[in-house]
């Protein structure tokens, strides 16, 4: 059974229909990139899966259960982690509080998971008690990704983790995501093709709110025409 199966998804914000037909199937353990130009609907797709944007028609099934109409907190509790485009860290809370707030359970496994996050991102360990507003962009992204790991969700949705980061930080983040992908299923929205190549094995391209292409990242890497047509590379 697929971990995530999306069919004919149409979603809207206010009076505007943003997604016009998304079809996607993600198997457990995969790392899949969602690629496309600015404004194609990639972020809206992740937000629709999370229940933050309303679905008009189509289906979203996670482990065989429908996510359509479920509020975000229920989607999260079903086992989907989410890192939004703007990091979504809480500036007035410390790193520790940001991580604690994400906990669904107060058990030893979650405590171990937080320790794992701090090992994965040592920068967070150093600044553990500091308010998140004092962190750099890279550190905020680390906190956002780390926070999504706290409950060991089977599926993690990550929205443009390279956005606004320096090349050296992007490299670091790519390796961290690759490490995370060893134990989790990742759905990665990314404009940085290099990062998507490092982290993911498969891709879907979204254009004007529709999935228009999918395949293996290694094939896309060699297909300059497709890259130019849909990604503008």
């Amino acid at each position: 059974m697929s971990l995530l199966k999306v069919s004919g998804l149409v979603s809207y914000i206010g009076l505007f229909t943003i997604l016009h037909g998304i079809d996607m199937e993600i198997q457990p353990g995969e790392a899949v990139a969602i690629l496309g130009r600015n404004g194609a609907g990639k972020t809206t797709f992740l937000r629709t899966v999370m229940g933050l944007v309303k679905t008009r028609s189509g289906t979203i099934e996670y482990k065989g259960q429908s996510l359509v109409g479920k509020p975000p907190h229920k989607v999260s509790k079903m086992g989907i982690g989410y890192c939004p485009e703007d990091y979504g860290v809480f500036n007035e809370l410390s790193i520790e509080e940001n991580l604690i707030l994400a906990k669904h359970k107060n058990d030893a496994a979650t405590a171990e998971r937080i320790a794992y996050v701090l090992d994965l991102f040592p920068d967070l360990k150093k600044a553990f008690k500091r308010p998140a507003r004092t962190l750099s962009g890279g550190q905020r992204q680390m906190l956002s990704v780390g926070r999504s790991l706290v409950n060991s969700p089977p599926l993690i949705l990550i929205d443009e983790p390279s956005k606004g980061l320096a090349p050296v930080v992007i490299e670091k983040m790519s390796l961290a995501l690759k490490e995370i992908a060893r134990n989790s299923t990742i759905l990665l929205v990314e404009q940085n093709f290099h990062m998507a190549l490092i982290v993911t094995d498969r891709y879907y391209i979204i254009d004007e709110g529709k999935t228009v292409h999918n395949g293996l990242m290694k094939d896309l890497e060699n297909d300059k025409e497709l890259q130019h047509k849909h990604l503008g590379l």
Partner: peptide
């Protein structure tokens, strides 16, 4: 903690479960 976080983004608090 939840209220302080919610003051910044209720949507993100919700996405955390």
């Amino acid at each position: 903690m939840t209220i302080r976080a919610g003051v910044q983004s209720g949507e993100m608090v919700s996405a955390l479960g």
